[in-house]
């Protein structure tokens, strides 16, 4: 039986993990290589780097960061942010990423998903959906880190991405992101029930029960979280212990020892 996954996300800028503080600036949270390895040791099933570097120099640094991370990390690594075409995918995979997540480029031209899947296999192409609830109760897809509203219905767009070759959907609720009141379960369920690829729920994790709900009620294959771990409010091990207590069959947490 496939285990529901706990994915830890790190925002990476110019080779450092950063965290926004009330939109007024970014705080340095540490070295991505060290943090990724620490989260694996705590029981994370997967690590996700979201690159928010804007410059070319930042992108070069990202490749180096991915390379150094892949040498010490023995769980899957997804890298997203700044992918403009299928040609940007290869170097990241070569550097050590296992999956690449794409948002804006797929809206401009969905063939980036098709071409990526053809070259590298669907299992490493992730379509990132940033969804915000509209007044009519539907969800709209946004690009450019949630700044640009598109005219795409988020659920239909997720299905279209899967049809175009994406092997996974990373589904973020813009409304819930950072609020810590739980994932948008309706959105998560709407997408999970619509597509036949795995869905990673993102945005809103505040406690273990939120992850449980994402799996059981949202039908998500994985739940992504960031802030509550980075701030030390809980650990992956604690979350997994709680999930196991509720009979959610996550991968057993064991303190990693180097063989």
């Amino acid at each position: 039986m496939l285990r529901p996954r706990v994915v830890v996300c790190l925002d990476v800028k110019d080779g450092r993990v950063v965290k926004g503080v009330n939109f007024e600036g970014l705080r340095d949270m540490g070295d991505p290589v060290e943090l990724a390895a620490r989260y694996e040791a705590e029981g994370a099933d997967e690590i996700c780097f979201l690159d928010i570097s804007a410059s070319h120099e930042g992108r070069g640094t990202l490749l180096d960061t991915v390379r150094r991370t892949a040498e010490v990390l023995f769980v899957p690594l997804t890298v997203g942010g700044g992918i403009r075409s299928a040609d940007d995918i290869g170097p990241l995979l070569r550097a050590g990423a296992d999956k690449i997540s794409v948002n804006s480029a797929a809206v401009r031209d969905p063939s980036v998903l098709t071409e990526g899947a053809r070259r590298y296999g669907a299992q490493c192409i992730v379509a990132s959906i940033d969804a915000a609830r509209q007044d009519d109760g539907t969800w709209r897809h946004y690009t450019h880190g949630g700044r640009t509203r598109t005219d795409l219905d988020a659920v239909a767009w997720a299905a279209s991405c899967a049809d175009h070759g994406a092997g996974e959907i990373l589904l973020t609720s813009i409304d819930r992101d950072g609020v810590r009141g739980g994932y948008d379960l309706e959105l998560t369920r709407a997408v999970s029930d619509r597509v036949d690829v795995p869905v990673v729920a993102s945005g809103g994790a505040g406690e273990a029960a939120h992850l449980r709900d994402a799996f059981l009620e949202g039908h998500a294959s994985a739940a992504l979280l960031a802030g509550i771990l980075h701030e030390g409010l809980t650990t992956v091990g604690e979350l997994k212990a709680a999930l196991t207590g509720w009979n959610v069959p996550v991968r057993p947490y064991r303190r990693a020892t180097s063989p």
Partner: peptide, 11 residues
């Protein structure tokens, strides 16, 4: 399987 790829940890 209904959901393909099989993506994740399995026994």
């Amino acid at each position: 399987a209904g959901v393909v790829p099989q993506m994740g940890w399995n026994e």
